[in-house]
C-alpha cells in the first residue's frame, strides 16, 4: 500500500532530515512511526502527502507520489493533523465533514449520508451541528477523525492523535483508531497508544530507520529505545515510583 524507496530529504542544504529511508506498509496494516523530536516523523507524512518533495521514490498503491499524481494519491490518504484547529476550518462539524466528499464530486445527499454514517459509527451524532469554536479539544479531535473518515480513504495517517487529550478522551481516540479497518500510519510519542493500536513499529532516529518490527518486540526493547532517546511505554515499564 505505502512504500518508501531510498527517500532522502533536507529542509536546509547540508542538514538532511531523512537519509535513505526505505520501508513498506501492507494494505490493512497498522504501523506506528516513532522517534525522538526531530527524527523525521512528520517529514515522512509530508512527503507521503506530497506537501514536500524529496529524493527517492514514494509509492501509494503502486502509484508514485508526483505532482501530477497528487489528486489521486490524496484521495486515497486521509490525514489527521496534530492540531485539530487547523483541520476544522469550516464553521460547523457537519460542514467540515461534507467538505471533502463534495469536493470529490459527491452530491449533497450522498455527502450528507456519509457524514451521518460516520458520526453514527463514532457515536458523535450530537456534534453534527455544533460550531467548531464551541466544542472541546477532545470533541474536536474526534470530529477531525470523523472528517477524514467521511472521505472514505484507503489509508489513514495520524500525526500525534492523542496529544493534549485527557485520559478519558485519549482512550476514546485509541478505541476509535483500533476499530478502523483501513491501513494506518500513526506517528506519536505516546508509545502506550502505539502499543494499543499498531501491529508494527518503525523507529526513526536522526533521519534513518533505526529499527523495524512487531510493536510488542520493539517497544519492549529498553536498550533500543533508550539509545534512541525514548523510554519504555508506561504499561511495560512497571509502576513508576
Amino acid at each position: 500500500m505505502i512504500e518508501f524507496q531510498h527517500v532522502s530529504f533536507a529542509y536546509e542544504k547540508d542538514r538532511p532530515v531523512l537519509k535513505d529511508v526505505s520501508f513498506r506498509i501492507e494494505k490493512g496494516e497498522a504501523v506506528g512511526l516513532i522517534g525522538a523530536n526531530g527524527a523525521g516523523k512528520s517529514t515522512v507524512m509530508k512527503l507521503l502527502l506530497g506537501l514536500a518533495e524529496g529524493e527517492g521514490r514514494i509509492l501509494v498503491d503502486g502509484t508514485e507520489v508526483r505532482r501530477d499524481t497528487l489528486p489521486e494519491i490524496r484521495r486515497k490518504l486521509g490525514f489527521v493533523l496534530q492540531n485539530s484547529d487547523n483541520q476544522m476550518f469550516m464553521p460547523t462539524v457537519y460542514e467540515d465533514m461534507v467538505f471533502a466528499p463534495l469536493n470529490y464530486g459527491l452530491s449533497r445527499e450522498e455527502a450528507d449520508a456519509r457524514a451521518d454514517a460516520v458520526l453514527k459509527r463514532l457515536h458523535l451524532e450530537d456534534l453534527k451541528n455544533r460550531y467548531n469554536h464551541k466544542i472541546s479539544g477532545g470533541e474536536k479531535r474526534m470530529a477531525a477523525i470523523a472528517t477524514v473518515l467521511a472521505m472514505e480513504p484507503e489509508a489513514v495517517l495520524m500525526d500525534e492523535p492523542t496529544s493534549a487529550l485527557d485520559p478519558y478522551n485519549r482512550r476514546i481516540v485509541i478505541n476509535t483508531v483500533r476499530e478502523l479497518e483501513m491501513t494506518k500510519l500513526i506517528t506519536s510519542h505516546d508509545l502506550d497508544m502505539i502499543l494499543d493500536t499498531c501491529g508494527r513499529v518503525i523507529l526513526l532516529s536522526e533521519g534513518r530507520v533505526a529499527a523495524e518490527g512487531p510493536a510488542g518486540e520493539i517497544l519492549r526493547d529498553r536498550t533500543l529505545l533508550e539509545s534512541n532517546r525514548m523510554e519504555l511505554p508506561l504499561s511495560l515499564a512497571g509502576r513508576p515510583y
Partner: peptide, 24 residues
C-alpha cells in the same frame, strides 16, 4: 506556519479553488 497547515488541510481534502462544497 499555521496558515500553511490550514491550507494544506484544505488541499488534502480535495480543495481545488472551487466551491463545490458551498451551498449551491
Amino acid at each position: 506556519d499555521r496558515a500553511q497547515e490550514l491550507y494544506s488541510s484544505m488541499l488534502l481534502r480535495g480543495y481545488r479553488q472551487e466551491f463545490y462544497y458551498a451551498d449551491h
